[in-house]
Amino acid sequence: MAQRKIIHIDMDAFYASVEQRDNPELKGKAIAVGGLPENRGVVATASYEARKFGVRSAMPSKRAVQLCPDLIFIAPPRFAVYKTVSRQVREIFHRYTDLIEPLSLDEAYLDVTEDKQQIGSAIGIAKQIKAAIRDELQLTASAGVSINKFVAKIASDMNKPDGLTFIPPDKVEEFMESLPVNKFHGVGKVTAEKMNGLNLFTGADLKRLSEVELVRLFGKQGSFYHKIVRGIDDRPVEPNRETKSISAEDTFLNDLDNPVEMKEQLDRLAAIVTNRLQQYELKGKTITLKIRYSDFKQLTRSQTLPAAVSDQETIAATVLQLLLKTDIQKAKIRLLGVGVSNFTEESGPAETAQLRLF
């Protein structure tokens, strides 16, 4: 198979940047787009000025204000505007290729192995895309360029904002070996801590273990780690991927054994899922709770409602009831997840399947 040319484009602080562009008074200020603290909201996106204080997406808004008392909240988010801008960005992508796999409104993979304008250089195409986004939309994007999706995505995050990072084919394996494990896409704090506890700090450390050993330590993800540290990722760019569900999950540094804390986490996850549903104009009938216990046993519980919903209150109340039907008095919970599926026909098109938090 011919080597692919993959670009990952990630808009810089997308929602917040659109707000700062449209309202010059917000430029240079710490802002957060999302739900208000008094409404148990979460941060959808924070400007780079806010990120300096530690404000991050998916963080409870109440916590964000504690970190940055002068934080300006934009609520509710203007999803209709963000979708319009996202379509404009997508139109720029289509000038070069139709092999586009959106991950959300603000990021996408592009396969430019064969590009429409016969430029031939993935780096050249990435530069032109970034320039068009800047000149036509007054926004910035970061790009990662390499031979597969995994490496391109990591590369796009290396020099944000407004960065462009190229990992050439003959440097991919070396790059993966040098990469700290916490920079691997999909390896969060808990997994990274486990790896560090096993003296696994870089890709090179993972590479010393056999696939059997990695699977024993990390389950089915072990097989993926075995491939990716060798620069192997054969996943194609998939245009028009249909969304089956919207979900959010979080693995906790300390196991939860207090029902009050469990409810707080479910409220937060429900808020994140609600944002995503509203972003894509989706409503679903089936609400799912996912639990992973401290002994790694896992269960899911679902409830199908008479009518499709997308509001935080209903989603949070439903997963709480599902939780209360489990044996929480003796439980120590390592992970909680909230999902909505079974979308109705009147729902709008969605372009992302899942949001995971680590």
Rank of each mutant, 00 (worst) to 15 (best):
Thr243Cys: 15
Asp162Asn: 15
Ser142Gly: 11
Thr140Pro: 10
Gly120Thr: 08
Gln128Asp: 08
Arg235Glu: 15
Leu137Asn: 02
Glu136Lys: 15
Glu238Asp: 07
Asp233Gly: 05
Ser156His: 10
Val190Lys: 15
Gly163Cys: 05
Asn240Gly: 10
Ser247Leu: 08
Ile129Gln: 06
Gly188Leu: 01
Arg235Asn: 14
Ala152Met: 03
Ala155Leu: 09
Gly144Val: 11
Ala141Gln: 11
Thr165Asn: 03
Ile133Thr: 06
Thr191Gln: 06
Thr140Ile: 04
Pro168Met: 00
Gly163Met: 10
Gly222Tyr: 05
Gly188Arg: 06
Glu242Phe: 07
Asn148Met: 05
Thr165Asp: 01
Val237Pro: 07
Lys220Leu: 03
Ile154Thr: 12
Gly219Cys: 06
Arg134Ile: 01
Ala132Asp: 15
Ala143Trp: 06
Arg241Met: 12
Ala204Met: 11
Ser210Lys: 09
Arg241Asn: 11
Lys149Gln: 11
Arg230Ala: 11
Ser245Thr: 09
Pro239Thr: 05
Ala132Asn: 14
Gly120Tyr: 08
Glu177Arg: 14
Ile125Arg: 09
Ile119Leu: 14
Ile167Val: 15
Val212Pro: 03
Lys153Met: 08
Ser245Gln: 15
Val212Cys: 04
Lys189Glu: 15
Met158Arg: 11
Lys244Glu: 11
Glu238Cys: 03
Gln138Lys: 13
Lys227Val: 00
Gly203Ile: 13
Ile129Met: 10
Ser210Pro: 09
Phe150Val: 09
Leu200Ile: 15
Asp157Ile: 12
Ser121Cys: 06
Ala126Cys: 00
Gly203Tyr: 13
Glu211Met: 09
Ile228Asp: 02
Ala122Phe: 04
Glu242Cys: 04
Gly186Ser: 05
Gly197Gln: 13
Val212His: 14
Val190Met: 02
Phe175Trp: 03
Val215Lys: 15
Thr202Lys: 14
Gly124Asp: 13
Pro161Gln: 10
Val187Phe: 03
Val145Lys: 02
Ile246Val: 05
Asp170Asn: 14
Ser178Ile: 00
Arg216Asn: 12
Leu206Asp: 07
Lys149His: 07
Ala155Asn: 09
Gly203Asn: 08
Ser146Trp: 01
Leu200Arg: 09
Asp233Arg: 01
Phe175Ile: 12
Leu198Ser: 00
Phe150Tyr: 13
His185Cys: 14
Asp205Thr: 07
Ser142Met: 09
Glu211Val: 11
Asp234Arg: 13
Lys207Val: 04
Gly120Cys: 02
Glu136Cys: 00
Lys153Ala: 07
Phe150Met: 06
Arg241Leu: 12
Glu136Pro: 03
Lys194Val: 01
Ile123Pro: 00
Leu206Lys: 08
Asp233Leu: 00
Ala131Leu: 11
Val187Asn: 01
Val151Arg: 01
Ile147Gln: 14
Phe166Cys: 11
Thr243Ala: 14
Leu164Tyr: 02
Gly231His: 07
Ala132Pro: 02
Gln128Trp: 04
Met176Asp: 08
Glu242His: 13
Val237Met: 07
Arg208Thr: 14
Ala152Gly: 04
Phe218Gly: 03
